[in-house]
Design a protein around this nucleic acid. Structure first.
Lengths: 350, 350
DNA sequence: CTACGCCGCTCAATCGATGTAGCAAAAAAT
DNA sequence: ATTTTTTGCTACATCGATTGAGCGGCGTAG
């Protein structure tokens, strides 16, 4: 066990040699159960000091190989480039760390292949839990995890074989639509049917939001124009193209819009600027998602903010309890003005 | 080596038993060097098929413990909540994966303690490289890495003991300032000294940007007002507070502003709305950083976009070459209109 | 004076994958 | 027919940390 200072890393065997003791003692001291193993505090101190001096860092690979629990928790996310997912990832990381778990996160760029590959890779690293955020095929991921003895959990988009935590898309969308309709009425004298743009028609969230959109129209006695429901996908360009197509086939454009995400809103805003079709009388806009700058764009653009801390509290509740049911938890989103407060923080551990 | 189907994971020993062969053969087949080890293709096929059937996933902890290289690459970032860092992380991940490296990323919330702790944790996981993004004390991280035989590399903020890849802050800020001054002149008839807001006076980037800011003023023959250089920190609230303080002590506010990041811009925009001090004649704004919505805010808010793909190309050039010099690489940022194109993608591997 | 227990530690097996060394059988060379 | 080479595989040590079992020595009770 002779090692060059620079090249090789210090191991417990090196420390044992230096301290004139055994590797077991060093291990026991450094992982904190030296009391249980009846190591004297003199020896403990000596070993601790030596470890410090030598800049010892445990080899997790070795440690995890031996232990039964890895304390690693994985998350896959579609993108990092908006506030919603950014905030999910940041909150997830700090809540995981609070619990002594090591978070590993991977961005799958909305690529179904990559989602599966990422899940497999994470299982190779022995994750105990995998949180699949906005996954295209959550049940597939659940199956892969189950086969490897890991637990999985869906966030943002629900699956049927693992617990799912999502926004209350129906109620959120209904309330958002109400507000846009009210703004229309206030500004234009009367409520007129809105445009729905963005999202995939096939995904649960978009379907629920369309349902809320319809419900609010029905309440207000306004008839929905079916050709104005444009679930064209999430990318900004897709929204732009959809609007181009709509504008070229219709002379009259809707006075108000329900935009299904900030990603789509990016395309919508660009199109409004570029096309000049709304010059003078900008459309009344509501967006299912929040962004600090987007919130400042119009005079009163309505934004629903998904309650990220609330959703992650629910996620970690499930993890902490380790329950094996598969509930669908719907967290109400929050309505907030552009200049007012912030979301509550996630609740710290007791 | 008898295992319950559900609870325990399949290992190469299980597969060996099923195939009636040895663990070495299984290992050789599954990691692809069975030709070299002279395993017959019949056996290889059989093992591959069995692995597939059993849903075998390699135990990376065991594999990495045995191998000399981990192929793990770490990155620490201050925040996920803006486009700059989001894009850095996303590009980093995909470039790492292209090279067969496994990226692990941690967000340190601009907390110096957490930076160090995160670095140590990553070293425990045997990272071969650690990219410290926007670190408060990059050299400390370099030292910790060196002590463990890992390489490190600074991104966004430079250090002195490891290679650093940063934006060309001086030239970028000078050009941005020129443009803001030109916009002032165009709109107001004459160029007047600008306000500089955001960033930490102590950090390299802010210092360089202030230098560029001064250089452009000097070129234009405009004198800088020293009391209008507000390096108040990055958080939105800090910018708001600084503007409050400025407004309460001065009657006349600057006609134009150089905002040091989108984070600070968030506070600046909120303040402008809230205070009403600029009603009617909004300030001419330039921002050192880019955000799609912020770009749409004013009529022509100037934004410099840091060349993230370019910076990460430089980062991975260093990693690929494995050179041990410590250069400071300054990547020119890009000026782009709010409605025009996108940054070039990172260059794929040959 | 023996017996029993506690203290403070060490030994050695183990986790799963890897790779070197080596072995038996078949094929090729002499 | 014997030697050499090649083929196709197995045995075993190894990576570093963990942990159950166990072992001397000392103190104390009987």
């Amino acid at each position: 066990m002779n090692r060059d200072k620079q090249t090789k890393k210090t191991t417990i065997y090196d420390l044992a040699a230096l301290a004139g003791t055994s590797a077991s003692a060093v291990s026991a001291v450094l992982n904190g159960n030296w009391k249980k193993r009846r190591i004297s505090s003199q020896l403990a101190d000596k070993i601790t000091r030596l470890a410090e001096e030598q800049g010892y860092a445990i080899n997790m690979q070795a440690s995890l190989l031996r232990r039964e629990k890895s304390k690693i928790i994985g998350m896959i996310v579609p993108k990092y480039d908006n506030r919603y997912f950014g905030s999910i990832v940041e909150t997830f990381e700090s809540m995981a760390r609070e619990r002594g778990l090591f978070p590993i996160i991977t961005c799958t760029r909305r690529d179904p292949e990559l989602e599966i590959e990422a899940a497999r890779t994470m299982l190779s690293y022995q994750v105990e839990w995998l949180v699949a955020t906005g996954a295209t095929d959550p049940d597939r991921i659940t199956d892969i995890c189950t086969a490897s003895g890991a637990r999985s959990l869906n966030l943002d988009l629900p699956g049927s074989r693992a617990p799912s935590v999502i926004s209350d898309n129906f109620a959120g969308a209904r309330e958002l639509t109400r507000r846009i309709l009210a703004n229309c009425e206030r500004k234009l004298g009367k409520a007129s049917p809105l445009l729905f743009i963005g999202g995939r028609g096939s995904d649960h969230n978009t379907a629920e939001r369309v349902r809320g959109f319809r419900a609010a129209h029905a309440e207000a006695g306004v008839e929905v124009d079916e050709s104005h429901i444009l679930t064209c996908g999430y990318a900004p360009e897709k929204a732009e193209n959809a609007l181009d197509a709509l504008a070229s086939r219709e002379g009259h454009l809707p006075a108000g819009m329900f935009v299904n995400s900030t990603i789509s809103l990016e395309g919508v805003m660009r199109w409004i600027r570029r096309s000049g079709r709304y010059d003078g009388r900008p459309p009344i806009i509501g967006c299912f998602d929040w962004d600090p700058f987007a919130a400042l764009l119009g005079d009163d653009i309505e934004m629903v903010r998904q309650d990220v801390p609330g959703m992650l509290n629910a996620v970690f509740d499930i993890i902490d309890r380790g329950s094996s049911q598969t509930p669908l938890i719907e967290v109400p989103p929050v309505f907030m003005g552009s200049l007012t407060g912030r979301l509550p923080q996630h609740k710290p551990l007791p």
